[in-house]
């Protein structure tokens, strides 16, 4: 254990020295790796926040039933009774056309009072229905929506899951783009790291040969370069986090929530500790692999 600790501390010491003394050579690899991690982190941040919105909506389990303008009191009473009598419904509320117009004005204040330009209020009366938590499955919601939509006097019914489904598709696409783009840039970063390590190894071949001559084992010679790559990746990850956090804080401090439109409903939050760990681990692994490629098959040989 003591020997392992000694070996690890020697490799870390040597790697740190290598990065510091050859910082001008290391800097390009560090910047490329950092940029790729910023791209990846930005996509993670966006998809994480959208996921939070989706999960909030999913937990709400709400359904809207829109009535035709010419609905009769008898039809509305039947609709009211059908909704209120359903076992899956936790609570429901009727929103008359005037209240709907007031809600529209408050939610979309930037549109001005466009409703005032119209001869009559085009918004229909509707029911906002909340489904009981244990019943919030797609199957139950779909069934209830179909049942209510078929009632006389109902224009249509829709539930949040439809929107959630569409948004989930969007989030998945965003994540895929993030993984593809981030992955591609990370691969480029890995190749850059491998090349930088190769150049460093080649430039320091005399130093490495001297190390071998004074009795340094291959584990020390190769290990310090592997650690050097890993440390470069970790450093790039920390820098990427600093860039993301700065951009995030700047965004929160200077952006007007009203100007964000749809985004204003996001309960914005920074990356979770797990994601931060993932980003740092990603950087470290990229650097390690880059180093390994520099020494692996086709890598530097000068014995």
């Amino acid at each position: 254990m003591k020997a392992l600790f000694g070996y690890a501390s020697l490799c870390i010491e040597e790697a740190g020295r290598g990065i510091w003394f050859h910082r001008r050579v290391v800097a390009p690899a560090l910047i490329v790796m950092m940029a790729s991690l910023v791209v990846l982190g930005a996509f993670m941040l966006a998809s994480d926040n959208l996921n939070a919105v989706l999960s909030g909506w999913r937990e709400r389990g709400q359904l809207q039933v829109f009535l035709v303008p010419e609905v009769t009191p008898a039809q509305q009473a039947a609709i009211d009774s059908a909704i209120g009598g359903h076992s899956a419904v936790e609570e429901y509320r009727f929103i008359d056309p005037e209240e709907a117009a007031a809600l529209f004005r408050s939610d979309f204040s930037e549109l001005g009072d466009v409703l005032a330009l119209l001869e009559e209020n085009p918004l229909p009366g509707s029911y906002a229905v909340t489904i009981a938590a244990p019943m919030r499955s797609e199957r139950v919601l779909q069934q209830l929506t179909d049942d209510l939509a078929a009632l006389p006097g109902v224009e249509g019914a829709q539930y949040d899951l439809e929107i959630i489904g569409r948004l989930e598709l969007g989030v998945r696409a965003l994540r895929l783009v993030g993984v593809l783009l981030g992955g591609t840039v990370l691969l480029a970063a890995m190749i850059t790291t491998a090349n930088v390590i190769r150049v460093m190894v080649f430039a320091r071949r005399r130093e490495i040969e001297t190390m071998r001559l004074v009795g340094a084992s291959e584990a020390v010679v190769v290990g310090r370069f592997l650690v050097e790559g890993g440390l470069q990746g970790l450093l790039a990850g920390l820098l990427a986090l600093a860039v993301l956090l700065t951009a995030y804080s700047f965004g929160l401090a200077y952006l007007d929530p009203d100007s964000l439109g749809f985004l204003s409903i996001l309960p914005l939050r920074f990356l979770s500790p797990l994601m931060i760990g993932g980003l740092l681990a990603g950087g470290t692994i990229t650097g390690l692999l880059g180093s390994w490629f520099a020494f692996g098959p086709g890598g530097v040989r000068f014995d």
Binding site: A3, L10, E13, M211, V214, G215, V220
Partner: peptide, 11 residues
């Protein structure tokens, strides 16, 4: 000192 470290001595 590097040689000492290679030999397993503490820093």
């Amino acid at each position: 000192a590097f040689v000492g470290r290679v030999l397993g001595l503490a820093r």
